[in-house]
Simulated scan of single mutants.
Amino acid sequence: MQQHFTFNQRLSIDLPTIQKDWEALTSIEQQQILVHWETVRGKIPDRIKNIESIINRKQEELSNESDFETSCKLNHEIAELASQINELWLWFRTDQEVTLKGHF
């Protein structure tokens, strides 16, 4: 399965990296890929929840921060985390129909 997925450090999940056309894979390989993807996909809401709690902590820090440079740094970190959430939602919405066509 490792050959069809690569761990994405930024998102902390495996992402599909299928090198062949979907039709070139055996039905067993296709099924294994789909099962693994659904397992990964099922963990995305928990990952998002975790990131949201980090954002909340950083927003609390920001509301108590008086140093401009530190405030800018916190804003940048919050924006990066929000970007990760957006990307995770995009991957989560990748449904099985798209998956079956091999559009990763």
Results as ranks from 00 to 15, higher is better:
78 I>A: 03
13 I>R: 07
15 L>N: 01
76 H>C: 14
29 E>P: 00
103 H>E: 11
28 I>F: 07
19 Q>E: 08
93 R>I: 00
91 W>Q: 08
25 L>A: 03
3 Q>F: 00
11 L>F: 12
68 F>I: 15
44 I>L: 06
68 F>H: 14
2 Q>P: 15
84 Q>G: 01
50 N>I: 00
26 T>I: 07
29 E>W: 07
40 V>I: 05
51 I>M: 01
19 Q>I: 02
59 Q>K: 11
68 F>G: 12
34 L>K: 13
19 Q>T: 10
31 Q>W: 13
26 T>L: 04
103 H>W: 13
92 F>I: 01
22 W>T: 07
62 L>M: 08
5 F>T: 02
11 L>W: 06
32 Q>L: 10
74 L>K: 07
63 S>F: 03
18 I>F: 00
63 S>I: 06
89 W>F: 10
56 N>S: 08
83 S>F: 03
20 K>H: 09
86 N>D: 04
32 Q>W: 00
28 I>H: 04
23 E>K: 15
88 L>G: 04
12 S>K: 15
62 L>E: 02
21 D>Y: 04
92 F>A: 02
9 Q>T: 09
45 P>R: 12
78 I>C: 04
88 L>T: 02
81 L>R: 14
89 W>Y: 13
28 I>S: 09
58 K>H: 08
68 F>W: 15
41 R>L: 03
38 E>Q: 12
18 I>D: 00
96 Q>C: 05
3 Q>V: 01
73 K>F: 14
63 S>K: 01
21 D>R: 08
1 M>H: 11
69 E>A: 13
61 E>V: 10
